[in-house]
């Protein structure tokens, strides 16, 4: 298999080298890719959408139909992961044992299913496979989370004027929650943001995006033609495009954030949602 793989990759490489010989020179300003379509976008973006970041303008306005289905792909990836891994029933042979630690003495006890804990406040539940980090890591992660989330919101809201946008901001927001899950344990974040809420928010993100498009359709123009939203947003048509891009980016951000949390919860607990990394 190694030899076949080597032959196939070398053949592919040889073909690519042969094709690359015909390419325009490296960083050539007059290459076909830079002269045919892109000058229009660079020169007209400010007039047509009033968004200085061309990437955001093209992503959420000119090519928004494409981006909408990318969001749908991310949503369905979260859904597929859920269907592949999530288990609600246990096998007959497995009995669930939970581990508790006595906070004062550090003694760990194991409770089999059907038995109950002695009535005391001094026990905390711990994972059997994974020991959560110490106090310093927990506290510093907890203090960092609000700042990371603030930065994520800034990245979403300021995507018009600086690098950023829904995808990046959503991933940063999701990563802040994942960091909380790593420094504490999985149950902490499931208490804060439940599985049902994650799934609903993921769908809501896609709905915000497609709903904006459908609203344009209802107002009598093409799907995702944001000019028509001017009477609803109470601004002139040009500013309406800029504001509608923000709405769409928020939808993308919500969908991406919840998909990341959903994927992480399913992967790290192998679908059991009881304990994990």
């Amino acid at each position: 298999m190694k030899i076949i793989g080597l032959i196939i990759s070398v053949l592919t490489g040889a073909m690519l080298v042969y094709a690359a010989a015909d390419f325009p020179a490296w960083s050539d300003p007059s290459s076909p890719a830079s002269t045919y379509l892109s000058p229009h976008f660079i020169e007209k973006t400010m007039e047509e959408t009033s968004v200085p970041n061309i990437v955001t303008a093209v992503l959420a306005d000119y090519r928004s139909f494409d981006t909408m289905f990318e969001t749908a792909v991310i949503f369905s990836a979260g859904l597929v992961c859920f269907f592949l891994l999530r288990t609600t029933r246990r096998k007959e042979s497995e009995t669930e044992t939970t581990h508790y630690r006595h906070t004062l003495t550090g003694v760990t006890i194991q409770i089999k299913e059907g038995h109950t804990l002695p009535p005391s406040d001094e026990f905390e539940r711990i994972d059997s496979l994974w020991t959560p980090s110490g106090l310093i890591i927990k506290t510093s992660c907890r203090l960092l989370v609000p700042f990371i989330q603030l930065f994520g919101l800034y990245v979403i809201a300021h995507g018009h004027y600086s690098p950023g946008g829904g995808f990046q901001g959503g991933v940063i927001l999701g990563a802040s929650i994942i960091m909380l899950a790593i420094s504490y344990d999985l149950r902490t974040i499931i208490e804060r943001i439940s599985e049902k809420m994650v799934a609903v928010l993921c769908a809501v993100g896609v709905l915000i995006f497609s709903g904006t498009g459908a609203l344009c359709l209802l107002l009598g123009v093409n799907f995702l033609d944001y000019n028509a939203l001017a009477p609803i947003l109470l601004v002139d048509p040009l500013t309406a495009r800029s504001h509608a891009i923000l709405i769409v980016e928020i939808g993308v951000g919500v969908a991406v954030m919840t998909t990341m949390i959903w994927l992480y919860c399913n992967l790290s607990s192998a679908g059991k949602y009881n304990q994990g990394l």
């Binding site: 496979l129 994974w130 991933v171 999701g174 990563a175 994942i178 790593i182 990341m260 994927l263 992480y264 992967l267 790290s268 607990s269 192998a270 994990g276 990394l277």
Partner: peptide, 12 residues
Amino acid sequence: VSAVFFVAAVFR
């Protein structure tokens, strides 16, 4: 995020 996903999968 994808490095964290890899670590989670390796953990499991």
